[in-house]
Structures are given as C-alpha cells and as structure tokens.
C-alpha cells in the first residue's frame, strides 16, 4: 500500500512538474526589462494624471514610445530628464494643468436655506436635497476635496471654500471626481480669465442666495466681444481665442468673473462690489 502511494503520488507530482516547466517555457510572456527600470524612476503616486491607470501602465507606454516623459506632471524635472535620457527620447512638454473651482460662495457671502446636521462630508450632505445651501450649484464646504487630495494642494479657507495651491496641484483629477457638485475642472495654468460661478439662475434669484454669483447681466460678454458668450445664464469663455485680457472682468458687478494670479488667488474687477463681511451670512427663507 505504501508502495502504491509512493508510486502514484511520485508520478503525479513529476507529471505535473514537467507540465508546468513546459508551460513556463511555452507560455512565457516577454516583458521588456526597461519597464521595471522606468517604473522605478516614476514617483509611484499612481495618481492617473498622465491618463494611464497607474505608474506601471505609464512606464509600459513610455517604453513602447506612445507617450513622452513630460506627460507625468508629478515627478520633478530631473526625474523626467533622467527617464528621457535613459530611453533616448525627447522630454516632451505638457502645459501644466491645475484644478480650478467654479464657485466663490463662501460662508460669508452665500446664504444657507437649511441647517444640515449629519455626516460631515459633501457626499453625504448632497444626498439630502442637495445640501443646505441656498444656491443649488454652490460649494457645500465640507472639504471632501481637501481630504481626497493626495498632494495637500487643497486647503479650506476661513469661509469654508477650497483653495487650490497651483504649485502643489498635479492635476490628478481626484477632486474633480469627488465633488458632488462638479465644481472642479482641470484647466491649463495659462487660463487666467475664469468664471467662478456655476449658477444657472439669473438676476435677483442669484443675489438672494449669494453675493458673488453671476447674475447673467452680460457686461463681460459685451466687453469681451467674441471671447465671451452668454450660455444658460453663464458667461462662457472661448479659450481658443486670445484670452490674456483683463478687460472683461472690470465691469462685473458681483465679481463672478475673475483674473487668477500665479499663486492661485483671485483678482476682481474695479466695479465689483467689495465683500467686507467676515462673519457667516445669516440664514434666510423667502
């Protein structure tokens, strides 16, 4: 009986081993050794800003030559140069993208219509009739974007509005995805002219809920000429034209269209009314 067991199991294992050895040779999948090396040089952030699912697929793309190292916005210039010289390709340049917020309604200017008392996230607040904010489109200010940002590029200011630090932002798109109000979008950093409002309402309806919302008065569209057109009560900037002009922001009565500085701060036009209130805007019902 022991003999049977030994022979049976011995032959079985040897058979299987031979099968696996043959399979290993026959079914061997060749992988370029450079993929591993290039992957080591990448930041391992797996953020997806390059358009690939992670650093390894990006490294595969680099080795195949379908992309250039400049596409990785997270790694430093030296690291990118290192990869480019290792693979013998040109660096390739990409204009830096940053996340931009299409809302300026902080606690001091935007009215709350209801008091939300629940789980302290925007995702949860948005589930309850879109949150307590008067403006349906506005930022809920619970800071989901601050939490989700892996690069500490987003901080909430004193009025519970997220502020993006353009130096730290890698345009990975996590905040774009997490915001329940879809207020973030990735924009080339050269786009300075910016509409910081997403409200589709017009006139007094906007002002009732927010002091800095776009009332759809259309002054920027008049001053901007073909650069700006009014669509759905919001100015739309045609970035394919020359948009390096501050003219359209000057006559905006609420300061909804702004000029963004290098450090990410906003500059409003000369005619826009100043907001001096530091305290929260009172709750209200109409």
């Amino acid at each position: 009986m022991i003999l049977t067991a030994l022979i049976a199991l011995g032959s079985l294992t040897i058979l299987l081993a031979i099968m696996l050895v043959i399979a290993n040779k026959k079914l061997y999948v060749y992988e370029d050794p450079r993929i591993d090396k290039v992957e080591d040089m990448l930041p391992h952030a797996n953020c997806g800003a390059c358009g690939f699912p992670g650093c390894r697929p990006f490294a595969e793309g680099l080795v195949q030559g379908t992309v250039l190292p400049g596409k990785c916005t997270v790694s430093s210039d030296e690291a990118r140069q290192q990869i480019a010289s290792y693979l013998g390709v040109s660096l390739g340049s990409e204009e830096k993208m940053v996340a931009r917020l299409a809302c300026a309604g902080g606690k001091n200017v935007a009215r709350n219509r209801a008091h939300y008392d629940g789980l302290d996230t925007c995702t949860a607040a948005a589930l309850v009739s879109g949150g307590g904010k008067g403006c349906f489109w506005g930022c809920l200010g619970k800071g989901d974007c601050e939490v989700v940002c892996d690069f500490d590029a987003i901080t909430m200011d004193e009025n519970s509005l997220p502020v993006v630090n353009p130096d730290k932002c890698t345009a990975c798109g996590d905040c774009v995805e997490v915001c329940p109000k879809d207020l973030f979008s990735l924009q080339p950093i050269s786009r300075r002219l910016w509409v910081a409002c997403k409200s589709l309402d017009a006139g007094d309806e906007v002002l009732e809920d927010c002091e800095v919302g776009c009332t759809a008065c259309g002054k920027c569209a008049m001053d901007g000429g073909p650069l700006i057109s009014m669509i759905n009560n919001l100015p739309r900037i045609n970035y394919s034209l020359n948009h390096a002009t501050e003219v359209p922001i000057q006559r905006c009565p609420t300061g909804a269209i702004v000029w963004l500085e290098d450090n990410g701060s906003k500059r409003k036009g000369v005619e826009s009314k100043k907001v001096l209130r530091k305290s929260d805007k009172e709750m209200g019902w109409s």
Binding site: L9, L12, T13, L16, A17, M19, L20, A23, N24, L27, Y28, V29
Partner: peptide, 16 residues
Amino acid sequence: VVIASTVQLVEMFIKK
C-alpha cells in the same frame, strides 16, 4: 496538488 498546479497552468495560459 492537482488543483494548485492546474490553476497555475491556466493562469499562465490566460496571461499568454
């Protein structure tokens, strides 16, 4: 033994 090695084999096959 057999299940483990067969699954291994199938995995290689799928990878290829």
